[in-house]
């Protein structure tokens, strides 16, 4: 299986490639991609250099242009697709149907992958995207079980890519405006979710409240860790219940499911984390590459290396297990 690894910066790209990434994915330093964070992403010359470096090492570069273009400013997104092709990237990752139609028409030779932001969650819609826009691969939304993924692969020729590690969306991706409801900025429009510019930590006596926009997302005691206030991982009250109504402060770790995902016909495994440091990226990529190589060779999984990855943090296999729902 192909290992698709995050590259938030040129340094992280090199680290991921050297650690054994088969592919890296990255974005331009603007609102055209869904990790539009300060200090992150690539200029045009950096992308060209990154592509050259990756190709020298036999790795591919995929460019995410996966926000939804703003009416009247479509040219910014069109230029991103054209510049990605010019830089020699191996594929673009798109979500918006207008942008997919544009790319199919004006850049027919540029490989098109369907972003998780399109939330294509069944074989019929995946085949529809293939028919209409010539997509070669789909990144599946995190609402499906392993059995459902296997069923999709039986009914489509389109390659499937699934998230196996890192941040976890609880909602169908590209169809969530919780962030903009609280802050005015969203993944779809601005490439950010629960943005840091809207976060405030407020000391309240012995407690620390984390606020997003005008809303308290959680509150912890002095000795407890204070997680980042991502809205869907927050602590709320409904009726008599107080707690993590949507999801706990966990991240995804599907390492134990790698053999099942392979059996389900998955082509590529994706690691989330373009906002993470290059040393983190290198460590995670190295562990996953060892696991994937072992799997392909029929050797036992290097469980200790994988277990070390999630030390000290709560993790889940998310929707891959039916009971999560």
């Amino acid at each position: 299986m192909e290992l698709v690894c995050p590259a938030g910066t040129p340094a992280a790209l090199r680290a991921a490639v050297e650690a054994g990434a088969h592919s890296v994915y990255c974005g331009f330093a603007d609102e055209t991609n869904a990790r539009n964070f300060p200090g992150l992403n690539f200029s045009r010359p950096e992308l060209a250099e990154g592509v050259a470096f990756a190709h020298r090492h036999g790795a591919k570069v995929l460019v995410a242009i996966n926000t939804f273009p703003r009416a009247g400013d479509e040219a910014i997104w069109h230029r991103a697709v054209a510049d990605a092709e010019k830089a020699g990237v191996d594929a673009v990752i798109l979500a918006d149907i207008g942008l997919l139609a544009h790319a199919a028409k004006h850049h027919p030779k540029l490989r098109r992958n369907l972003s998780v932001q399109a939330a294509a969650a069944n074989a019929d819609v995946i085949n529809f995207y293939a028919r209409e826009f010539g997509v070669s691969r789909v990144v599946l939304p995190r609402v499906l079980t392993v059995a459902e993924i296997a069923a999709i692969n039986r009914e489509t020729e389109v390659e499937t890519e699934v998230f196996v590690f890192g941040g976890l969306c609880v909602m169908a991706e590209g169809r969530c405006s919780l962030s903009s409801y609280a802050t005015g900025q969203s993944p779809n429009m601005n490439g950010v979710c629960s943005p840091a510019s809207e976060v405030e930590y407020v000391q309240e006596g012995a407690q620390l409240a984390a606020r997003l926009g005008n809303f308290t997302i959680h509150r912890v005691g002095a000795s407890e860790p204070a997680p980042y206030p991502t809205l869907c991982k927050g602590c709320f009250t409904s009726g008599d219940e107080t707690g993590h109504i949507f999801e706990d402060a966990v991240s995804l770790n599907a390492t134990e499911l790698l053999p099942q995902l392979k059996k389900a016909g998955v082509t590529a495994l994706k690691i989330e984390g373009r906002q993470r440091s290059r040393s983190y990226v290198a460590q995670v990529v190295r562990s996953f590459r060892a696991a994937v190589d072992a799997l392909e060779a029929g050797r036992p999984m290097p469980t200790s290396a994988l277990a070390a990855l999630s030390e000290g943090q709560a993790s889940t296999t998310g929707a891959y297990a039916k009971t999560w729902r």
């Binding site: 909602m171 169908a172 405006s177 919780l178 409801y181 009971t323 999560w324 729902r325």
Partner: peptide, 20 residues
Amino acid sequence: QPLAISGRCYHARLHNRSKD
């Protein structure tokens, strides 16, 4: 306003039940 849709049922979760 509809803000999000999920594979998970929050009503069931609030009642300690699974979606099924």
